[in-house]
Nucleic acid binder design. Sequence first.
DNA 1: CAAAAAAGGTTTGAGCTTGAAATACTCTGC
DNA 2: GCAGAGTATTTCAAGCTCAAACCTTTTTTG
Lengths: 164, 164
Amino acid sequence: MANQGPDAPRQAEHSAETGAASKARLRLWLRMLKSTRQVEAALRDRLRTEFDTTLPRFDVMAALDRFENGLKMSALSGVLRVSNGNVTGIVDRLAEDGLVVRVQVPGDRRASLVRLTRKGQEEFARQAAAHEAWLSELLSDFTTEEALTLADRFDALAHREEDE
Amino acid sequence: MANQGPDAPRQAEHSAETGAASKARLRLWLRMLKSTRQVEAALRDRLRTEFDTTLPRFDVMAALDRFENGLKMSALSGVLRVSNGNVTGIVDRLAEDGLVVRVQVPGDRRASLVRLTRKGQEEFARQAAAHEAWLSELLSDFTTEEALTLADRFDALAHREEDE
DNA sequence: CAAAAAAGGTTTGAGCTTGAAATACTCTGC
DNA sequence: GCAGAGTATTTCAAGCTCAAACCTTTTTTG
């Protein structure tokens, strides 16, 4: 893609608006996306072959593992930042496999709490350990310090977008 | 590679078997993923509301825009790094809308080249301009220099994974 | 040359994802 | 009480995604 114009962005350097900055950010975005997708693909593949599960299922279980008291469906979709209806199906399938349960909330017949079962906890523990190891391998280009620095950098970005 | 040994590294403060490094990388991964998804969600939303299209459609058109002579289906899925069958459906829908065409390859009755139509080119040009502007806005936390530095950093990562 | 292997694509089945509409329940104010 | 507003969740249609199975057409090879 890059340099199609023979001498496109010459001229004075008051580029500012559609200029160099936006090209640089576009470039960054494309790399980020590529890297993220590669890591995601690797994780998905290993989850599938070694645990016969999927990334979304893992994500849901990870969220539930952090909240031992369970999460309401809406809270779950909020934490994962996916749509409401989405979570319904994933939880359905996890429940079929006996990894999570829906517990009725006493005072409110609309809501239910989703919680990991014992089996779910044990299964997730195994998956999470493997997941962390895979990731460390996949991101081994980054030293501990660099990883932490970058993590904070992205954190700022994430927070900025968060409240919309 | 990984220092898994029961007593491989330790000593000088980094006892790090499954330790600090992998936690840091896990943290980085979670932030990357969150940021990437937020940007993706924003882009998807705007593509939908302003151009009535989707990110995968945009990606396909972007790939075709870079190769004016067209791409074979297999090359297209290679460039985009998605599965074969996936591209079939997206191209089908783009073709229905008159944005791309499938052209028979002379010497080979199996293959066809996919190409942007005139209309597709024009439509993509509008979308790409908007896309670049949105991105610059979404990533405005990063200066030009920082963006380029990070892009290179991720590039290394991407290339490392590439050949598997 | 014919059988086997490989290459290019599509189809299929299962699951993920979204946004919108539908359902069901709770709460507020009158 | 009860109408309406608001909350919690599910259902639905359309589209994306993958892996695996499946055609068809080339290419290889015995």
